[in-house]
Design a protein around this nucleic acid. Structure first.
Lengths: 208, 208
DNA sequence: CCTCGGTTGTGAAATATTTCACAAGTGAAA
DNA sequence: TTTCACTTGTGAAATATTTCACAACCGAGG
């Protein structure tokens, strides 16, 4: 069943999914209108839907709700996922305090930190545990995804603990570059986003 | 001069640049050793360097410092860039309080917010200004890049103000999807990173 | 000097992805 | 019913990107 979609197609479908979420289900969109909203050419959107197996609906635009359901059918985005956060620093605690509101898709169920004091002092609705309990708690709480927000030197061991607990995917905000053949890992690094941005600007006159 | 490199090549060179930064300049790396550090196949690294115009150095590995210089020569990463942050919320102020330490490449020189109280109350080394002054201040302070960390509904006007001030690139953390034909824009959305991650996991058994 | 294990740089082949072009469908209006 | 201005879905063509294979090179150790 799981036909292997091109990575970029997956990425674009995620983007489209996002704008559809914030839209009335009854809204009717043509591929070109949708394209303007997400900065993707209309023919690319149509091709993406085509290779993803979109069945013929009508030749008068897409109903937002139907598209949403179609993408859900592909990726099961409507099933809630249980997420934990490792590292309760500035970034980590922002995930715990401002939980991601995406139609309840992601539920933060645990936080971890090596600093026991921090765990005891900080008050939060999400239960916090010491880092060494990570693998057990992940198993016990049936956690699907992990967010790593620890310093670089602790990133590798954190990933190992998460793997040991049976986690399926990791979003890594630490400066370390993580990767694994068994689980999906995505590295996000703010400075590098800035750097990539500048590399894409053709003729940047430096400010000084 | 600016030969048009494939986007993915640029992205990989940025990643390589990052690991090289945290390394002694004298370290000698083969393409395969480097590849293991960044999770990129060795032949892809060699091809990237080749199309980027790497001139023959030796057939016994790369010296970290030389590679660094080579990538700098391509993208001018050593010239410092002046950056501003729009939206002094949790995320925005984290950029101001914990400035990105990437060899001094990025210097945060201003923060903006519509909430005047916030600007007056918050103390920071970085000067803060009301949002309506944005275009003028950007011009005056010769700001190159902008980070948008405002709510979705304010994102578009913020981008317009930045453009008006003559900014060259924008890193957008708001939930809005921004794009522009004149300037480089990069959208980063945490929930979507998580969603993309789950879409890439082949057979994810949902936790509940 | 010669060999050996390891290395780079790069054309050419193999893939992957995007773009194009168009037949065919839709709904409204006359 | 016929036209009109729109739409989708998709093979095929055009591009882009990755992978491969290998000649040429390096440095160490005879």
């Amino acid at each position: 069943m799981s036909l292997q979609l091109p990575v970029q197609t997956v990425s674009r479908l995620c983007l489209i999914y996002r704008v559809l979420l914030g839209m009335d289900r009854e809204t009717v969109l043509s591929s070109s209108k949708l394209g303007k909203l997400v900065n993707i050419p209309a023919h690319t959107i149509r091709k993406d839907l085509s290779v993803a197996g979109k069945l013929k609906s009508s030749n008068a635009g897409y109903k937002a709700g139907e598209l949403l359901d179609f993408i859900n059918g592909l990726f099961k985005f409507d099933a809630p996922l249980r997420v934990c956060v490792a590292g309760i620093g500035l970034l980590g605690s922002s995930f715990i305090k401002n939980p991601v509101q995406e139609g309840g898709q992601f539920i933060i169920v645990a936080g971890f930190d090596t600093n026991i004091n921090k765990i005891e002092v900080m008050k939060s609705d999400v239960p916090l545990y010491p880092a060494y309990e990570m693998a057990d708690r992940i198993r016990e709480l049936k956690i699907d995804l992990g967010i790593i927000a620890v310093p670089a030197q602790a990133a590798e061991i954190t990933m190992q603990r998460m793997k040991e607990g049976g986690i399926k995917g990791i979003l890594n905000f630490s400066p370390a570059i993580l990767g694994d053949k068994d689980i999906a890992v995505r590295n996000v690094h703010f400075a590098e986003e800035l750097r990539f941005l500048t590399a894409m600007i053709p003729d940047l006159e430096k400010g000084d």
